[in-house]
């Protein structure tokens, strides 16, 4: 019995087929598993391991290297506040402290109702609208405590669900075709081209 839903399982299979080596799909697959469970659950890791041909320990060992892959449950909304240099100069520390107060958790923590996880992040590459805040990796551009409060209230009320989907950075990424070229045919074609150029 598959832990991932049939639809997700299919997306995983299609992704795997895009790479010369299966293991390359490991991280994309972890993102897809997080869509379903919110985090990288054990059964998901076991299933991913089988799909890409590594051991579950290798999936876990790889995943723990990356900040976006959570091996423990997180809230429905992961709120990231950047405090790196450009955001620091714009009051990123204060905004993070405000978020801690508003949510009643320290950075890294999850609210008791499981709605929010708060994270202090490194630079999110949006430094001109500082301090930068992301929710589930969507830029929300709430640079003041008031704007952040408003956003948190809207999220709680479910008003931003369209714009900010739940977990998974790939949840709205859909590739319309598989590979259209056959690797062996490509290799032969490139070899011929080189010969032609060399001749």
């Amino acid at each position: 019995m598959s832990h991932l839903s049939p639809e997700r399982r299919q997306r995983c299979e299609r992704l795997i087929a895009l790479y010369p080596e299966k293991r390359s799909a490991l991280i994309p697959l972890c993102h897809i598993a997080q869509e379903q469970d919110g985090y990288l659950s054990e059964p998901a890791m076991v299933e991913i391991a089988a799909m890409v041909g590594v051991t579950p320990a290798e999936v876990q060992g790889t995943a723990t290297f990356y900040d976006m892959l959570h091996t423990e449950p997180v809230g429905t909304y992961v709120v990231g506040v950047c405090t790196n240099i450009a955001c620091l100069l714009a009051g990123g520390d204060e905004l993070l402290a405000h978020a801690e107060g508003a949510l009643g958790v320290r950075a890294g923590g999850t609210t008791e109702d499981g709605v929010f996880t708060l994270e202090e992040t490194e630079c999110l590459a949006d430094c001109d609208i500082a301090p930068c805040v992301q929710v589930n990796h969507r830029y929300v551009r709430t640079t003041t405590p008031e704007a952040l409060d408003g956003l948190l209230a809207e999220l709680r009320a479910g008003d931003r669900a369209d714009e900010i989907p739940t977990h998974g950075t790939l949840i709205r990424v859909e590739r319309t075709t598989g590979l259209t070229t056959d690797p062996e045919a490509i290799a032969a074609e490139r070899a011929a081209k080189r010969e032609e150029a060399g001749a």
Binding site: R23, S24, H31, T62, A63, D67
Partner: peptide, 30 residues
């Protein structure tokens, strides 16, 4: 003929270093 694959990282500055990026693209720690 050519295929392009769009590949996501997962949050690690070091993966900008090109050989780390390749490791990550191979499905490993960066």
């Amino acid at each position: 003929s050519l295929d392009i694959v769009v590949h996501p990282g997962a949050g690690a500055y070091i993966c900008g270093e090109e050989t780390s990026l390749l490791e990550s693209l191979e499905g490993k720690r960066g």
